[in-house]
Simulated assay, not measured.
Amino acid sequence: MSSEFGHLLKISVFGQSHGAAIGVVMDGLPAGEAVDLDALQAFLDRRRPGKNALSTLRKETDRPTFLSGLENGVTCGAPLCAVIQNSDQHSSDYSELRDKPRPGHADYTAFVKWQGQADMRGGGHFSGRLTAPLCIAGGIAKQILARRGIFVGAHLASVGTETDDAFPLLPTAELFEAVAAKPFPVLNDAAGERMQSAILAAREGGDSVGGVIECAAIGLPAGLGEPMFDGVENRLAAALFGIPAVKGVEFGAGFAAARSCGSANNDPFTISDGRVVTETNHAGGILGGITNGMPLTLRLAVKPTPSISRPQHTVSLSAMEDAELTIRGRHDPCIAHRAVPVAEAVTAAVLLDLLLEEHHGTF
């Protein structure tokens, strides 16, 4: 199904933004893994809406209820199913959108695909609301990986033209934790202030702004992954593009490598503490689809929120004529800062799946 990813660890997301509930099923989790529910809730709270003027004013607690797969806080081998109740929907704000699709949104393509039957209230199954159950799965994956010395962290690299510092060559778990503890997920707080100003300016102008997320994973062994079509980049990109509003994924130097020379882009090998490492990391920790033991680094391009309050040109599907649309309701002026933990979640889930494959279902 289209809302599922993973090979041995299959993760399926279900629900609609304004339905009764949203949720996730994780099939293939190893048994006997403890889940710290308080730590998981703290992770979910990083993504939660309604905390300040930088995000939608929709108020949701995002507290999951586990229906199966968890017994006394420990995975029991059965598929894990968790649901989050929706409680603050304003569905009437979306009535006009059944006839007038939002520019930049999936309203029109969903109308064509499902012949007008798709539930597009609040974006329906296409909504960023569906990233909450993704964070349940990824938050659990992060805990399992951390017990094996593998850590995943991310920060907001840019908003519009305002940029944060980049991760260092060798980021640490402590650095990831420090960024995660901040109300705005950046390395350089002064840059974060400028980014927040850009978001608020977009809101005041009835507009929105996009951003870039940098994510990294440390502690991965060399040799993980496969060449060609089942490489680490392939598996990660396929899942990361499932995050609503993600329009680009790059690894290591990414597109900047195309403007470089081999002499500058190649990462020289050296020996450090008895192991092979590289002096730079333009490859992002992956060569030929296989990890090389350096930090895995990637970036996500997150587009501006399509739902803006400025009048926009669209069409009336019933009349088949041009029309004007002014969108009502509560919408994020920027999605990127709330998507930082989502990037961590999806990355961790894919890496756990890859490691389970490498170790034949357990490790």
Rank of each mutant, 00 (worst) to 15 (best):
V186P: 05
P185R: 03
G210M: 00
A216C: 14
F184S: 04
R194K: 13
A191Y: 01
L200G: 07
A190N: 12
S197W: 11
G210P: 01
L220N: 07
G192A: 06
C215G: 06
I218D: 08
A191G: 14
A191H: 09
I213R: 00
V186F: 02
V186E: 05
V209S: 00
G192P: 06
D189K: 12
G205P: 04
G205A: 15
G206K: 09
P185T: 07
R194N: 13
M195S: 00
A198K: 02
R194G: 03
N188V: 09
A190S: 14
A202F: 02
M195F: 00
G192I: 05
Q196E: 15
G211R: 00
L200K: 09
A217N: 06
I199E: 06
D189M: 12
C215I: 13
D207P: 07
D189C: 11
N188E: 12
M195H: 01
M195Y: 00
P221L: 08
S197Q: 15
S197K: 13
I213C: 03
G206T: 09
N188R: 12
L220C: 05
A217E: 07
A198S: 12
I199S: 02
A190C: 11
A216N: 05
E193K: 13
V212M: 10
L187A: 07
Q196C: 13
D189R: 12
F184G: 05
A216R: 10
V186W: 03
G205M: 02
I218L: 07
V186S: 03
L220R: 07
E204C: 11
